[in-house]
Amino acid sequence: MLELRLVQGSLLKKVLEAIKDLVNDANFDCSATGFSLQAMDSSHVALVALLLRSEGFEHYRCDRNLSMGMNLNNMSKMLKCAGNDDIITIKADDGSDTVTFMFESPNQDKIADFEMKLMDIDSEHLGIPEAEYQAIVRMPSSEFARICKDLSSIGDTVVISVTKEGVKFSTRGDIGTANVVCRQNTTVDKPEEATVIEMQEPVSLTFALRYMNSFTKATPLSGTVTISLSSDLPIVVEYKIAEMGYIRFYLAPKIED
């Protein structure tokens, strides 16, 4: 028996919008730790890892570890039927081939339940080792989204370089080139407006902008984004989900032939 009650149901709606275009089908894993997901895109270039900790739910009952295979597009269709202020409860019985999403309006005058068919998904779980990153950049998520969108109108790939001068995003295409440099800036009114660069050593890596733009669909989840870079490791683009956990996107770099 599984019953997870999330008062801020809009978080789950936003999570689905953030990942449904990257991943088609995924197993949601439920354990005492929380509600989590790890999945790769169909070309195995990007990986998404989601954690919503059990403490973040108003009610969290998970009698035994459960893995539920869901089509994310179908799940998104169902969650779009929940109001932004609704409380969402996820329910499943042991051995059932369905999951139920229950939506309650804030004043309890409307209660809806949507039952969705589960699916068997054969996916392998990857071990993500702890790594020391050469550079970690924290910046406003809206700024990062803007840069990725702007650069993708010029080129297909972005070179992200961190030096002591700052973080540089560069692209080139048929019509020309573009460079955006963000310097460390901590003299801002609100902490989420800061750009903070922690660099152990300079690093420069190339990534496909198509994936970066897909990751920025998580922007509504967090005011800041943290980008971790190391030579010969996938980049990590992390959006913290307030008091609940995170959504992390990993993207393998492109290398010169």
Binding site: S43, E124, H125, L126, G127, P129, P234, Y250, A252, E256
Partner: peptide, 14 residues
């Protein structure tokens, strides 16, 4: 020409 690497060449099952 740059070549796209895959996640599975960095992270292993487990």
């Amino acid at each position: 020409v740059s070549q796209q690497r895959q996640i599975t060449s960095f992270f292993s099952p487990g």
